[in-house]
Amino acid sequence: MKIVCRCEDITEEDIINTIRKYNVQTLVELKQLLRLGMGPCQGRTCLPIAARILAKETGKSVEEIMAPMARPPVIPTPLWLVSEDDEK
C-alpha cells in the first residue's frame, strides 16, 4: 500500500480506483471525491504525485491536468492574526 496523501490517508489504489470509477479528468474532481489536498499541508505533498497518476491514467501530460486553484492563506493561520481590529 502506497500512501499518497498523508493528511487524509489516501492511497495510490484509492486514487486509481476513483479515476476509473468516475472517469476523472482533473485534480479538482479528485479533491472533491477524496478530500485529496484538503488537509493541513493543503496538497503540497500529494498533488504533484496525484497529478502524475492522473496523467498516466488519462494519457494527458502533467501540464495539461488542471491544477486546483491555490487557496489562501496556503499555510494554516490563526484567526486572531487576521481578524479586524476591535476598535473598528
Partner: peptide, 15 residues
C-alpha cells in the same frame, strides 16, 4: 471571534 471567542486561536486552512 465575536460569536465564539474560543475559535480565535484555531487555524484557518483556506478560503
Amino acid at each position: 471571534g465575536k460569536y465564539a471567542p474560543v475559535l480565535k486561536s484555531i487555524n484557518v486552512m483556506r478560503q
